[in-house]
Each structure stands twice: as C-alpha cells, then as structure tokens.
Nucleic acid binder design. Structure first.
Length: 299
DNA sequence: CTTACGGCCTGGGTGC
DNA sequence: TGCACCCAGGCCGTAA
C-alpha cells in the first residue's frame, strides 16, 4: 500500500532514470482509472521529462515546456513563460499501483495498463491489479485546483503547525492522521505505527492530547516516516520500487497486521479495531483508551 | 461548519 | 474442484 515512504522511494528511483529522457509514445490497456487518456497520449508524446516529484501520496512526472523540441533562447522563454506552470502527469498508486522502468523488450507483468515508451529503448510501465490508482494530465493551473486543498507534508511541517492542525480538532486522532486535507501522505500503516510509537490510542481525539503527547506523536510520525524511507518502504502486498524491488520496513512493523502477537514494548497482545472506518492496530496496555465517551460538542 | 458512517470501485486470498 | 465472501484505501453522499 503505497503511502508517503513508498511513493518517496518510487520517486527517487524514477529520478535516477527519467529526467532528460523523452517520451516517444504512450499506450494504454484498460483506462477506467485514467482521466482523459487521449489527452495524456496526445499531450505527452514527444515531450521531454524534466523531473519527478512527490506531493503527499501523489507522484508528478513533470514535462519540459511544450515548445522545447527545438533550440530556444532560455532567457526569453523564462521571461515570457515565467508564470506558466509546467505540464505534469499526476499519478496516484492507489493500493496496488506500481511504476517501474524496464527494457521495452522485458516481459510485461499482468495488469500492466499504461506504457510510456522512452527515447532510450526503455519503458515506464504502470501496473495496477485493483486499478484503485488514478492518472491524469495536469495543465497550467490544474495543479492548484487538484492539489491545493491537501494538508501539510508531515516531514515539512513544524511541531507548531502539526499541533495547530491536529490539536484543535474533536475527531479521532487516527482519522486526523489519515485525512489528506490535514496531513498529506500518511496512510493506515504509518498512522498505526506512529500512534504505537507515541503511545497514543487511535480513538483519542486530537484536542484531548496533552502537550507532551502531541509532541511525542509529532516526533513519532516523523521518525517512523524517515526510517521507512531509509528502508525503502513497506512491502505488505504488491508494493515495489521503480526497479521492481521490495522494501524492508514491513520487517520493522510493531503493530500493523500483528493482531494477537506480543507488543514489542510490554508483551501485551496487539489488538485490532475499526477506527475511522479503518483497521487499526494498537497495544491495549501501552496505548490507553480514552476513558469516557466523547461529548457531542458542548451543549 | 464538523464528524461519523456506509457504499462503491476491483480482484487476490481464504475458507468451506 | 468451485465459489461465496472478506478486505484493502480513497472518495463521495448522507445524516446528525
């Protein structure tokens, strides 16, 4: 399940292969998860790739300016196009999406639905068993419209920003961590792992966290994400990086998918419960449940 | 406005 | 061997 660390790992892998390459042709298999596939094919054929970046769980393949096919005066271009946003291909990997670079002659994995032929004889391929992913071409101005409402990147947010976002909300902290409009990039694995690390129960509300708990959660979230990036993400089902290799952070999971197993800190049996509509894994001893029912607002 | 919840998309894994 | 069912994450509609 690609979350921030997995997408970051894929992006870093793609950055080693794609910038400077040119997309020769785009071919599709199934397109029910693609917004305007014909626009993607027409818009990207012949375009050079200038960079790859992550935005939350989204991945952006950025194109060079459309008129860059021939020689041009860079200074003049900058002067006239200064406010123009680069076109970019926006990709969300959903649950089972994979982006890999391979030789065009390499065997095609099942459920591979998009092929970007590159000018060096290789292909960028999009494979997605469930097709819960998403792909669309962002033109000038689309970026703010599509991505503008997303929350802070958890690795860029200061402790004060994090506290302001989470600490004034009455919703369950698990729901807040998962809400992409609060923080962008956190999913079920890293929410559960961070809450365990911070010893905060997922059903606590944001505004019930004491300052030291809020600080612990902020630090736990960043430490967990950084370690997961270092270990190239969690491969619990289909996730692989741009080279097709699995990550290793799943070997460090302390609660996720460990229901019934012993807590690494205290030995109690890890529990699983549905919180915010999601499977949530926690230690019932280390992470104290809120005692009383939450008040339905002040009345 | 905020929060909670159910349904929908798809198909691999599981259990009978 | 087949087959019904569960579940995953994001998003959207609805209700309170």
């Amino acid at each position: 399940m690609p979350e921030l660390p997995e997408v970051e790992t894929v992006v870093r892998g793609l950055q080693a292969h794609l910038p400077g390459r040119r997309i020769v042709e785009v071919r599709f298999g199934k397109t029910d998860f693609v917004i305007e596939p014909t626009a993607i094919a027409a818009g990207l054929a012949g375009r050079g790739i200038s960079g790859v970046r992550r935005f939350g769980k989204f991945l952006l393949v950025e194109c060079e300016a459309a008129d860059s096919a021939g020689p041009r005066d860079a200074a003049a271009g900058a002067a006239t196009k200064g406010a123009v946003e680069k076109d970019a291909l926006l990709i969300h990997l959903g649950m089972t999406g994979q982006l890999t670079v391979s030789a065009a002659s390499a065997p095609v994995a099942p459920h591979t639905h998009v092929f970007f032929a590159l000018d060096d004889g290789r292909e960028l391929r999009y494979t997605d068993i469930r097709r819960f992913g998403q792909m669309q071409l962002l033109r000038n101005g689309d970026r703010e419209r599509v991505l503008g409402s997303l929350g802070l990147d958890p690795l860029e947010a200061s402790e004060a920003e994090f506290t302001a976002r989470v600490g004034e909300r009455n919703a369950r902290v698990k729901a807040l961590l998962l809400d992409q409009h609060v923080l962008r990039g956190v999913g079920n694995i890293y929410a559960d792992e961070s809450l365990w690390r911070a010893r905060v129960h997922p059903m606590r509300t944001g505004d019930s966290l004491r300052p030291e708990e809020m600080r612990a959660l902020y630090r736990a979230l960043q430490a967990t994400l950084r370690e997961a990036i270092r270990l190239r993400g969690s491969s619990v089902s289909d996730y692989v990086d741009a080279e097709g290799a699995r990550g290793e952070f799943q070997l460090r999971h302390r609660v996720y998918q460990r229901e019934g197993k012993k807590c690494f800190r205290c030995g109690a049996a890890i529990r699983r419960a549905i919180v915010a509509g999601r499977s949530s894994h926690f230690c019932p001893r280390c992470q104290r449940a809120p005692r009383k029912k939450r008040s339905l607002k002040k009345r």
